[in-house]
Design a protein around this nucleic acid. Structure first.
Length: 362
DNA sequence: CTCCTTTGACCTCGG
DNA sequence: TCCGAGGTCAAAGGA
């Protein structure tokens, strides 16, 4: 699917603007009989709402036009995947990402980029990685980390990934650019989820929901209509119960392979087209994971798209904040980092282990 | 003792 | 050809 992030953001803004406009129109209409001037204003607002619909529909219909996908928004909840990338953008093709200008990686030795994504959970991709390097990169506040497949040696797997924390974050949630280089060619045997973190790869079914067309359309329909959605099928939106829980951490060593976050709970994520933040189980005492856990459904969720026209920033906005007049459209069950220990600086990765100690440098 | 991360040095590429 | 930046290696140290 190729629904550009820029498009999502624009669409979000358009729709939120339309929503606000409609709310004003409603207020106007409820204010009593309209005089000539009020009638004019109401008509103007109505026309503007129509324009919003038109623009939104146009954007929806034109998404197949092959327009390049541009990273503009770092969603804390959704992992934005650019998909397979075989060719890199021209060197001077600056991209805007999370409000930052990002120079595409120059052509290097490894040119076989298979995927790029922006995620809050750079390590929850179902594979085990070994860090082999870290480098301070110009223009980035945070060092870039280099990972190889754990089986690069044993099985000659060439898969690598580079994880770059963004300069900006969404609230206190750091976002990461993850660039995958080379496909895994280590043979994956079916591994029980419990074993996944320890003994190898498990079937890497998609662990995150991508915003497919139906989902996006459904979402927009919800926003436009304010109707309670039937809810996208959980099969398409919720990750499979891969399980691989961080509680499977090797109890002894702290320098374990990268942790694999839990899949999302199917029940709690139903109804939202947006990926919920991964919510690793409470870490064991020996784990260095920052505790992140699912909390009660009374808390506002942090789904994206945020902004709702109220802000063009990439900050997280609770669904209740966006859609308050209608009540939450989804059944938001939040997942948020909790119990962040005070000794962990806020600009450190929201979860970390010894393999991903994000140490900002200045 | 083993395995992994850290980190500085080295290599390679592109301007 | 030089230089800066990014990517990788490998020794050292830690758990």
């Amino acid at each position: 699917m190729a629904f550009g992030l820029e498009a999502i953001e624009q669409l979000s803004q358009e729709l939120a603007g339309g929503y606000n406009l409609n709310a004003r129109l409603l207020t106007l209409l409820r204010g009593g009989p309209l005089d000539g001037r009020g009638q004019e204003r109401a008509e103007g607002m109505s026309q503007e709402v129509s324009r919003v619909f038109m623009v939104s529909l146009f954007m929806l219909n034109s998404r197949e036009s092959g327009r390049p996908v541009v990273d503009t928004m770092a969603s804390p909840a959704a992992t934005i995947t650019e998909g397979s990338i075989d060719e890199r953008a021209p060197a001077k093709d600056m991209r805007v990402c999370g409000g930052e200008e990002v120079t595409p990686p120059r052509k290097g030795r490894e040119n076989e980029v298979t995927k790029k994504e922006i995620t809050a959970s750079p390590h929850s991709d179902g594979y085990q990685w070994r860090k082999y390097g870290q480098k301070n990169i110009q223009k980035w506040k945070f060092a870039r980390c280099y990972y190889k497949c754990m089986f690069s040696h044993d099985r000659g797997c060439r898969a690598k990934k580079m994880v770059q924390q963004q300069n900006s974050s969404c609230g206190d949630r750091p976002m990461f650019h993850v660039t995958y280089v080379h496909e895994h060619n280590c043979q994956r045997e079916a591994v029980s989820p419990g074993e996944a973190t320890r003994s190898g790869h498990f079937n890497p079914q998609p662990q995150r929901a991508e915003l497919d067309d139906d989902t996006m359309a459904s979402c927009l329909a919800m926003v436009i209509g304010g109707a309670a959605p039937a809810g996208p099928s959980s099969s398409s939106l919720s990750p499979p119960p891969v399980g691989a829980s961080p509680s499977d951490h090797d109890g002894g060593r702290t320098s374990s392979p990268l942790d694999v976050s839990t899949g999302l709970d199917v029940e709690t994520s139903r109804g939202s087209p947006f990926d919920r933040l991964n919510a690793p189980a409470a870490p064991s005492s020996s784990s260095s994971l920052l505790p992140v856990e699912a909390i009660s459904s009374s808390d506002p969720a942090v789904y994206m798209p945020a902004g709702g026209g109220l802000s063009t920033s990439t900050d997280v906005i609770a669904m209740d904040d966006i859609y308050f007049p209608c009540g939450p459209l989804f059944s938001p069950v939040a997942a948020r980092p909790i119990g962040r220990s005070d000794d962990v600086p806020m600009d450190v990765a929201m979860f970390t282990d010894t393999t991903s100690a994000w140490t900002p440098y200045s």
